[in-house]
């Protein structure tokens, strides 16, 4: 153990040293700051998870694919309702029935008329 007198003597030195703390220069501080920023990981931007609709949309190819599907659907419905002449004949040849909602005479043909009859008979 150091005695009281020695402790007091050392305290004056330690106090003087603490008061005379070595400080880094401004230039060095600037370099350290530049290094900290250069080494820093790039900030991660938080993006929300895509909704189910966005996932489906991107799965089938986005809006251009939706436009294509819509066009094909409209064309299919249109061809089904008012088939071209050539198609109407070929369907008649194959199945013996007319395709479309109008028969060859131009009058409306109910495609579900047979079903109605069967249903009403029980």
């Amino acid at each position: 153990m150091t005695d009281k007198r020695t402790e007091d003597m050392l305290d004056t030195y330690f106090t003087a040293a603490r008061d005379d703390a070595p400080l880094p220069s401004g230039d060095f501080m600037a370099r350290m700051q530049a290094m900290a920023l250069a080494e820093q990981p790039v900030r991660q931007v938080d993006t929300p998870a895509p909704s189910w609709w966005q996932q489906i949309l991107s799965g089938i190819g986005g809006w251009p694919a939706i436009a294509g599907l819509a066009a094909a659907t409209v064309a299919g419905v249109w061809i089904g309702a008012v088939p071209p002449e050539a198609m109407s004949d070929s369907v008649s040849d194959l199945f013996g029935v007319s395709a479309g909602l109008y028969d060859s005479s131009g009058s409306f043909a109910d495609p579900l008329s047979g079903f109605d009859l069967a249903f009403s008979e029980g």
């Binding site: 060095f28 501080m29 900030r43 991660q44």
Partner: peptide
């Protein structure tokens, strides 16, 4: 660590004198 530049500056300002001293 999340990329906060303000934290980088504050930490440098705080730690550099301490380590250097």
């Amino acid at each position: 660590a999340t990329g906060d530049a303000a934290a980088a500056r504050a930490l440098t300002a705080r730690l550099t004198p301490r380590v250097y001293g």
